[in-house]
Amino acid sequence: MIAVELRMMLRRPRVWLCWALLCALPALVAVLLAATRLAPPPGRGGAFLSAVVANGQLFPAAALALVLPVFLPITVAIVAGDAVAGEASAGTLRYLLVRPVGRLRLLAAKLLSVAVFVLLAVLLVTATSYGVGVAAFGFGPDAAVGGAGGIASLSGAVLTPFDLLLRTAITVGYLALCMLALGAVGLFFSTLTDSPPAATLGVLALVVAGAALQPLDAAAAIEPFLPTAHWLAWIDLYRDPILWEDLRAGIEVQAGYVLVAFGAAWANFATKDITS
């Protein structure tokens, strides 16, 4: 079932469209920046955007910061919300279950395909934006002297290319985990309804609610547990030395979301009457 599910996902036009759009937005921004050389002043606009004009190698980080607040959650909500509800509304769910595919196996396969989707999404954005960034902005001031040279971190110190690669890899993993948490919630919502749009909108409502509550002082007590709370913690990876505290808290909370949401999905789906 797991192999079948992955093959199914890769054959869905919608999935490719999501990936294409995710990669297109940063590319568009890069083209505009390169054409105008009008970088937002430091501290305003997307994180890193002011720095990328000087060095294209930082563009993946800027691209991730661009798609993170809205684009990425939307695509995850679409794919995860469709996971079970899509099969239910198409009627294929009952035929899968009588094949038989065990219900736990079905859910696990769906979660795995969501995981693969988010990982590939983040990776694709990173890879394409690296290419686009280098093409548009070059390797920075040292490039002429020693090839791909050092990059200034947010704290000012210089990072070696290997260091940057490592930090980017951790960023990709961390963001994939954050999005997987959202995807797991989407999977849970998807078992509650037979309508994919309802599940998708449920996930987006959660994201919007989280973003709305986050800046409120009155919500300070629950702030660390909001789904969106630690989404920006990865920016600390580009400081020197890396500030791990927030990242560690983020990993814990997001992994907790995955476990709790998957448990809830299983609790609901295991004994659910399939009447679709």
Binding site: R7, R11, R94, Y95, L96, V98, R99
Partner: peptide, 26 residues
């Protein structure tokens, strides 16, 4: 059950192959 169902974006043949592969021992 009630009515047939299939993944609309795939051909009939692909549907049967995937459904068969999804089952045990697939």
């Amino acid at each position: 059950v009630e009515s047939p169902a299939a993944w609309g974006h795939l051909s009939g043949r692909a549907n049967l192959r995937l459904l068969d592969a999804a089952g045990p021992g697939g």
